[in-house]
């Protein structure tokens, strides 16, 4: 699949209508405590079809929510249903689910093909069927030509895509991705986002979490926000768009000579503001996040800038959440 260089984020998701009758995922007044810490409180939500973004800062309870769906942990209160069954007690519904953990550890000694094939066999496939399926999903995530290499020699973005391929191997109806964009370079970000959108288009239910509003916003319009373990209902995404105007997305670049880079970057029309908060850091403000991200690599390479990190700081999320919680 070719990465979407335009980065326009045309999320084509279905209208989100919570279907209480037979939802793929259902939370009914679910809470989870770790000792005396409330990780989740009173979560009630039902999801079916389309891409749903789960937004929240680190520690907001996104991973806890997903672990509950995957039956990795047991709810302290309330009912979790996955395809109408309790995922903590019954592993059968996992046959229809693909899960991408935020954990970055992998079986580095295996080749991607081996890894996917081995775990595909846990769905009851024969060795041959599993290999065929593995090849299919690895091609789908764009790793077809390197699938015989050891995972340990992959870049971060490739590893992320192997994890996604692992989740897709059973052709699942529900795909859960926990922070799939974390640590990815811009190019991988784009291709991962495209994969997610593509899955949504294919009619799958996708749950994707992020702590970066701009990322989520480009993947889907259907967003639920978690804050301190509570669900904040979002009426529509216009509120977010308004907030986005007030808090333009930022791109933080760690480089040797931010001033020189600033001179080259200022030529991009979409750049709204530039600042140099520290000696080796250039921060770009822009309303057109994707366009800038697409143009950046070319500028950096053409002018041979020494860059060692590109990041999207999420300090704006906090103010948005503050706004959403009614300023309390």
């Amino acid at each position: 699949m070719m990465p979407d260089m335009s980065q326009v984020g045309e999320a084509e998701t279905k209208e989100w209508v919570p279907d209480k009758t037979a939802p793929v995922v259902m939370f009914d007044n679910v809470s989870k405590q770790y000792g005396r810490i409330n990780a989740l409180t009173g979560i009630s939500v039902a999801l079916s079809g389309g891409v749903t973004g789960v937004l929240g800062m680190n520690g907001a309870g996104k991973s806890t929510l997903f672990k509950l769906v995957m039956g990795k942990i047991k709810p302290s209160g309330g009912v979790v249903k996955l395809f109408g069954q309790d995922p903590w007690k019954n592993t059968a519904p996992y046959a229809r689910v693909g899960f991408v953990s935020e954990n970055e550890k992998m079986h580095d000694w295996m080749t991607a093909l081996d890894f996917i094939t081995t775990f595909a066999r846990l769905h009851g496939l024969t060795r041959y069927e599993a290999q065929k399926e593995a090849t299919r999903v690895l091609n789908f995530v764009g790793l077809g030509d390197v699938m015989l290499k050891q995972i340990g020699r992959y870049s971060k973005g490739m590893r992320q895509r192997v994890k996604i391929a692992h989740a897709l191997v059973n052709d699942p109806e529900l795909i859960i991705l926990d922070e799939p964009l974390q640590g990815c370079d811009p190019l991988t970000r784009t291709s991962v986002m495209n994969v997610i959108r593509e899955l949504g288009r294919m009619g799958r239910t996708v749950l994707v979490s992020s702590h970066i509003l701009h990322e989520i916003e480009r993947i889907t319009e259907q967003i639920i926000t978690l804050h301190n373990g509570r669900l904040l209902a979002l009426g529509n995404s216009h509120a977010i768009r308004e907030m986005l105007d007030q808090h333009p997305p930022k791109i933080s670049i760690m480089c040797a000579d931010p001033k020189a880079l600033a001179k080259d970057v200022i030529d991009i029309d979409e750049v709204r503001g530039l600042s140099i908060p520290s000696e080796n850091n250039l921060v770009i403000e822009t309303q057109h996040f994707g366009v800038v991200h697409a143009k950046l690599p070319g500028i950096i390479v053409d002018n041979s800038h020494n860059v060692w990190g590109i990041d999207n700081p999420d300090d704006d999320l906090e103010s948005i959440l503050h706004y959403l919680t009614g300023g309390s």
Binding site: M70, N103, K105
Partner: peptide
């Protein structure tokens, strides 16, 4: 790396 295995049916 356990999650790879326990996410399977």
């Amino acid at each position: 790396t356990m999650h790879f295995m326990i996410a399977k049916p």
